[in-house]
Nucleic acid binder design. Structure first.
Lengths: 214, 214
DNA sequence: TCCTTTGATGAAGGATTCTTCAGGTTTGGT
DNA sequence: ACCAAACCTGAAGAATCCTTCATCAAAGGA
């Protein structure tokens, strides 16, 4: 893979004045909106600019190409979710295992649900080039945070299995995705139930996985 | 949504001679190949035809448009996987719960792994219009099969929760996806470990979910 | 106030892509 | 051998799309 494939994704110019900061923000928002209303196939730089209320030229002043725009939006969202889960993982140390997992899983569900529209929109581009890579990176980052937390469990079982943690996280992510993509924004009751069930899923699996260690 | 959006996805003509059957098959295969080597973005009807060794016109004799081609390939794969899991669900009735789950989960992993290339390729288009719908339908179909199986468990707990089964299936699917998209085709050792862990995940969750019922 | 930087505009070039159709080739029955 | 049906071809029309650049407007320090 060519080295400039990554460089071409970096933003082109950073806003220095206030109005341009607004512009960049509205371009980001417009990307989500177009993604939701038209789909990834019909997402066009022109359409995004139109929806943002600026001209195409303006868009290209901050993003060198279409892909870099999508990449930036995706990266931004993933980082926010990861940061929130990491924070919870740090503050939940030195507790019993079940409680730690519960806090972590709930934080994950909440972070995704809070702006369900963004999540749904981004699923539609998470498959493009660079997407799986980002997801993988963030996944690793999350895994490390969870592992560090689990290491401090008061009811210390054997240390958690690296592979098992990965499985747990991707399973949780998959279930959330399926739920969000299922259609109309889920009712509060559904969200409650999902939280509860995902907590149960993670708890029971982690308990089984750490116990099984010989 | 317009009604003809679905009709436009139906195949245009069904092969009657032997050579045309070969042609459509090679078009299907070529679609996978192009998807893997070029990505969804660069998948072109012309490129698919080229790779299949036929001309574009031929392709359009069997598929009314590009989307119908992708839809057909995706549908075919999902149906195969679903059929296999359903078959196992039927033959695994009247056993203890843990054993049933194990057979089901292993069948799922095997079905996905057997042609990992197809799975990976199709993830790249499963997000297009009609994709989530198909996935949802197949998910429901699978859920019913699993529920029917669980109802016959010899160590009968309370009947399984509908929502919980959905969670389990989507979690399993998500974990598999993450694994497959992680990159280079996983080693046999990784596959073994994945099978084992996914079985554990499903077993422990189902046990916890049925036990929790009041 | 004046001038340099920063920000915004949008028409147009260049490149792809989807899809059709008029005309040729192959197959299989009679 | 003959013919109708099935099948294949691929150049070309019509529609988008990405990206650039010459030009204009706003901002803010000197």
């Amino acid at each position: 893979m060519p080295a400039d494939a990554l460089l071409a994704l970096e933003p082109r110019k950073t806003p220095v004045q206030a109005r341009s900061a607004v512009t960049v923000q509205s371009i980001s928002e417009a990307t989500i909106q177009v993604l939701l209303s038209q789909g990834a196939e019909r997402l066009t730089t022109t359409r995004v600019a139109e929806r943002a209320g600026v001209s195409v030229g303006t868009l290209y002043q901050y993003y060198p190409n279409k892909r870099s725009l999508l990449f930036a939006v995706l990266e931004n969202h993933l980082n926010k979710v990861a940061a929130r889960v990491e924070a919870v993982c740090e503050s939940a140390r030195h507790k019993p295992l079940a409680g730690m997992i519960q806090e972590m899983a709930e934080a994950f569900v909440d972070a995704k649900m809070e702006r369900a529209d963004i999540s749904v929109a981004l699923y539609r581009i998470s498959t493009g080039l660079g997407g799986p890579l980002l997801v993988k990176q963030v996944g690793q980052r999350l895994r490390r945070a969870v592992e560090a937390m689990l290491g401090t469990a008061t009811d210390a079982k054997s240390p958690p299995d690296k592979f098992a943690v990965e499985i747990m996280l991707s399973a949780m992510g998959g279930a959330m995705r399926s739920l969000l993509e299922a259609g109309s924004n889920p009712s509060p009751a559904t969200v409650r139930k999902a939280r509860e069930q995902l907590v149960l899923l993670c708890q029971s699996y982690m308990a089984a996985a750490t116990a099984k260690r010989v």
